[in-house]
Nucleic acid binder design. Structure first.
Lengths: 354, 354
DNA sequence: GTGAAAGCGCTAACAA
DNA sequence: TTGTTAGCGCTTTCAC
């Protein structure tokens, strides 16, 4: 029922090799098939409804048309990342999707799957868990699979990494709040693991801006393995930040959180507690996610210069880079750091007095 | 550098066949490897860092651990669909992701890719374009690849389909609005192609409820190939609906749109035009997307009974069904139709006086 | 209990 | 210009 190369060859009385070459227009150099046979082969392939077996092709040809995409989780925003990747290289590659739900055990297993499938390249959001460093090394050194990381680096692994300039995000955001006259700013951030580099870079950016202004930072952060995916946890953390805010003797006039996703939760909780934004408190996020720019949300935030979506930009850039690496180009040793800019909207206001 | 079965066999002085069997614990029936060799094989496989080649395995074993997921586009909500699929079967399968951006040409090509990759099963949002019906037939009849569709059926193809009860969605929504006292209701819907069955079912549900109440429906629909993905188009259609609303002699008191995504655009445009929701007009969507339930959005809508996300439920159910089909179970001929329920929130109000 | 051999569908040298 | 021959890494039947 399913047609193979050999079927076509038999049908035409030629050899499988000829069919193979004809179908792929491989007549470079010494090879030179007559246009007639090429045409004949293509015609009967068409007529028989031949579909090349990609597995056999990869196995024999020692090269794959599949790339692996490893995500830490599938949440709001992931679709844009994927779309960026997809759009950049779906003409030549198909992506094998893996998700590890922020669980290093699953991460390890999924990478194993990608290696087993002999993908031609991998784009991954590594968890950073130390016990999995060896497997990333295996990808790069043993299997020589081109790898592009995003969002975070991996220690002792020299591999290109794509990310939004984390420190700039919070540095710029804080500066913007300061310029609006805010002095008491509550910073809220979550980290999903103790190896989450961005978490610390984000805090650093904020601290630097505050100390440049001669102010003491006010941090409400949670480290450790959090399950951001579970709505309750996400929401619980937002509630915690607002509790902290409400509990301060002198209430902060602004809250800066390390992600728009968290800002949405804060907005939600503010709405429930009847706290006015920006009347009672200004709010700022990071990332400029899809809903932030809607006029009925209007979240002030930080986005990537020249890009609508940071997520999508990361996907696109990572894919472009991976394509080059797969084409055999040498990595120039530079990460791709997406420049950031503040986007002030409705959730922040200028302080008139004080 | 990369370890193969043969390497392990040589290392131990046994045959590749033995290694193959040992590694897969295949000692059923007549086969009976000594526990000692099995242990030895496993130990050296471990030590050498052996990774079975999934391609070779599939090729030789005539069965795949990969499934294809074909999406019409990657937009807000797709991540939940994918997460549903992923969570349901990532333990045994990896998914090959294909997106056709609502373009039947790309759809055709991507399906070709999935077939070429000899996936073990496919979950697809078919466009319904007539020129591609043959290729869906090819999947099912020639390649005998288990197929589960979602969102829409395909004519002349007897294949399980998973979808939210489209007619019920708008029927229930309309009834809810009627019960709130609304009489003039503007219905807005978009279709991306002329084969989009849900579009017509949704209109039908609305019409039925209206006619049961002895009222004339007021429709503002757009058929034909729209690119919903492009924000301008999406927004443009929302603006069109509001224009229509504003232009009516007797203004409708409620607007019902066929998707929360469209409702968000309407909210956005209302905010821009300073139209109060629900003060000036009540608004209702369909689908209960992630943001609708947030208290600062509070979109009244229709969701799947017992499920937080309809998208996720579709992914989960489709995956579960596909798994059964791949396990050889016969399809019982019934589609999976997700029951719907109205969820009234802040964007709708009861009309006090007519 | 274990091995030898054939073959999955294709590609890539090298012959002819 | 085309065919022959070996694999790619694995599974599976059948013989030992």
């Amino acid at each position: 029922m399913v047609v193979t190369l050999k079927n076509i060859a038999d049908e035409l009385g030629v050899s499988p090799a000829t069919v193979s070459l004809a179908l792929r227009d491989k007549m470079a150099g010494s090879k030179n098939l007559s246009p007639a046979t090429v045409a004949a082969v293509k015609a009967t392939a068409q007529r028989l409804g031949y579909r090349p077996n990609a597995l056999a092709r990869s196995l024999a040809g020692q090269q794959s048309t599949t790339i692996g995409v490893l995500l830490s989780s599938l949440v709001f925003g992931s679709e844009l990342l994927l779309d960026g990747v997809q759009t950049s290289l779906s003409d030549d590659f198909t992506s094998l999707l893996s998700v590890y739900h922020r669980d290093p055990k699953i991460e390890r297993r999924e990478i194993g799957v990608l290696i087993s499938n002999r993908v031609g390249g991998i784009i991954a959001a590594a968890s950073g868990a130390p016990e999995n460093l060896d497997i990333y090394n295996e990808i790069v050194h043993r299997n020589k699979i081109p790898l592009v990381l995003y969002s975070r680096h991996l220690p002792n692994l020299s591999v290109p990494t794509v990310y939004a300039d984390h420190t700039a995000c919070t540095y710029l955001a804080t500066k913007a709040l300061l310029e609006l006259g805010h002095r008491r700013i509550l910073y809220g951030g979550v980290s999903f693991s103790k190896w989450m580099e961005s978490h610390y870079m984000l805090i650093e950016g904020h601290n630097r801006a505050m100390s440049e202004a001669g102010l003491e930072p006010l941090l409400e952060t949670s480290a450790g393995f959090q399950n951001w995916v579970k709505p309750q946890q996400r929401h619980g953390f937002a509630a915690g930040i607002l509790d902290r805010w409400a509990g301060e003797k002198v209430r902060p006039t602004a809250i800066l959180v390390d992600s728009d996703l968290l800002a949405y939760e804060i907005l939600d909780e503010c709405s429930a507690r009847d706290i006015q934004v920006p009347g009672d408190v200004s709010l700022m996020g990071v990332g400029d996610y899809e809903f932030s720019s809607r006029s009925y949300v209007g979240l002030s935030t930080v986005g990537t210069v020249g890009e609508v979506s940071t997520q999508r930009a990361i996907g696109t850039r990572a894919a472009e880079l991976l394509r080059e690496l797969m084409a055999g180009k040498e990595w120039d040793g530079k990460d791709i750091v997406l420049p950031q800019e503040v986007r002030l909207r409705k959730t922040t206001r200028r302080l008139t007095n004080t």
